[in-house]
Design a protein around this nucleic acid. Structure first.
Lengths: 204, 204
DNA sequence: GTATGATTTAACCATTCAGTTAAACTATCA
DNA sequence: TGATAGTTTAACTGAATGGTTAAATCATAC
């Protein structure tokens, strides 16, 4: 019984993810989720008692992706430039696989900040570690002087924002030319790394 | 007779903006808007017949801010580096005055992309102009070679994203230390300009 | 074959919410 | 004074929606 994972439950989770991600908690309709999962409302409630519970299931799942084992990269003891490059690669990799995450998080963030920030705390990464490391590199003259917090925000912005604003980017720049869009997003990692290195690394 | 602007209507618009901006179209409640405006639901419908109409009024207003007279800067014939710097200054200025805009747009974008993209079209700025100018500067060896579209996305990302993700930034980095947050956001323009110049300008 | 759990059907309940209505009240203007 | 626009109060309608329920059906295992 249920050798892999219960197929219906997975269908529900998949459908719920799609609907919640595009419509948000408020906009999502249980009926729509049921339809998309190819079942009926009764069965949907049979699996997940309430909309609230279903949402939390999805939400937790997504957060796990959003703040991934990148902590490990951050905590590692490699050089800062190397570390930034690995961070960008790892983060872009996650985003390419789950491009809807930024949009979803932005939406739910203002709706209910408290539960969200609680979630973040659980992953409790300490940015101070990176900030200190950046400052040391500056003192050694490896990279230019700048507020480490601004540097971090710059890097993360360039990684995340294009996914949050994907519809605008794809419409304004690419007129919905799908293959070109795909290509563009695949190039992001390389471009960002190059851009950051150019901006901060001091050549001897 | 309404010498300035009808005070009640303005109270409504102000209240509606606040509610729509934090809750989104779906999450917003007419009752809440009425309460926040210090009036009752009946009067609210007396001024704006429906939630739709009220939302559209707010939406149009906000879009006007979001895509401001920056077009003029883009179309001007100053040098590209200068132009980027002026763009960043102007854009950050708008964002500092209306910091809620990015979050709002992100939310409503996935809910109803069509009406939104229609709005954008109206402002019909042609990014191709800037792209061409960037390429010319590259050919003259003023700035390094890179896909102009990536450059544009990088700059805009660094400008906009911190506002869209403001709650996270202020929580993770600043632990809600308001004055520090304010200071940080005021520094953004200078930091971004410096960062971009470092990244792309070729020193002779 | 029968028991059990999964699934459907379809009706239903309770609540929330946008929007309406009518009546009364207030202030202002003419 | 009386007309008029703005405003309140309070009750209501109607639709959408989350959630429940009971009975019927289907599949599978025992």
């Amino acid at each position: 019984m249920e050798t892999k994972k219960d197929s219906t439950e997975e269908k529900i989770l998949e459908a719920a993810k799609n609907v919640f991600v595009t419509k948000g908690m408020d906009g999502a309709r249980m009926q729509e989720i049921a339809d998309e999962a190819g079942i009926n409302k009764a069965l949907l409630h049979y699996y997940f008692r309430s909309k609230e519970r279903l949402f939390e299931a999805i939400f937790g799942e997504i957060i796990k992706y959003a703040f991934p084992k990148i902590s490990r990269i951050i905590a590692s003891d490699m050089g800062i430039v190397n570390k930034i490059e690995q961070f960008v690669d790892a983060y872009l990799d996650v985003l390419m696989k789950h491009p809807f995450i930024p949009g979803f998080i932005m939406k739910e963030l203002s709706r209910d900040p408290s539960t969200f920030l609680k979630m973040i705390m659980k992953f409790g990464f300490n940015p101070q570690i990176v900030f200190t490391q950046i400052e040391e590199a500056m003192n050694r003259g490896e990279i230019i002087r700048m507020d480490p917090r601004h540097l971090a925000v710059n890097v993360i912005s360039m990684c995340v924002f294009p996914f949050a604003a994907r519809p605008i980017v794809s419409f304004v720049i690419f007129k919905e030319d799908q293959p070109a869009i795909e290509k563009f997003y695949h190039e992001r990692a390389t471009v960002i790394k190059q851009f950051v290195v150019n901006a901060i690394v001091i050549k001897p």
